[in-house]
Amino acid sequence: MEKFTQHTGLVAPLDAANVDTDQIIPKQFLQKTTRIGFGQHLFHDWRYLDATGEKSNPEFILNSPQYQGASILLTRENFGCGSSREHAPWALQEYGFKVIIASSFADIFYANCINIGIVPIVLSEEVIETLFQSTNDNSQQFTVDLAACTVNTESSQYQFNLAPFHKYCLENGVDSVGWTLDKLAKIESYEAQMPAWQ
């Protein structure tokens, strides 16, 4: 997993609540056995006017010329709800998003982001509203500093919380499986005392 320390990037404001993983990556694109090839289908049904993805929808925010190359997604509450499909954060990452800022995330989606190196940032609804107002009319760059846990806009700085271990894993690109395998003795001693039916 790629290490994350600091990132400055263009912000795309996706003004919708409860954006579910079916929207992020519809099921017809889940038939791959690899982790790549999902970015082109990100937000497919919103992004394209046709089923085959040939006609771009000019109304959709990510198709707007001013948000091309965006790497920070600003959105609203309960982002990533629904299916556990990790294909959703894979698609966001392959498209180019490194950071997602929302007032809340669905639990499984949040864990999936941490596990692949996307930084999910929770800010209050009031702050999110302010950020939407500042980004709706003009394109803006934010800088996210993981060590300081801050989001820096052109005019303000906002602090966010991240669990210490999540922060450590993102900063160091930790192979979480390898990390746990180093504790095999503890797993073995747990297994040795389990009841027969378990």
Binding site: E86, N112, V177, T180
Partner: peptide, 21 residues
């Protein structure tokens, strides 16, 4: 009982454990 992502599926395969808040 709860749903997990594919990276976690891999973690369970290798370790029979998960990290959970």
């Amino acid at each position: 009982a709860f749903g997990i992502g594919t990276s976690e599926v891999e973690h369970v395969f290798a370790t029979q454990t998960l990290r959970q808040t």
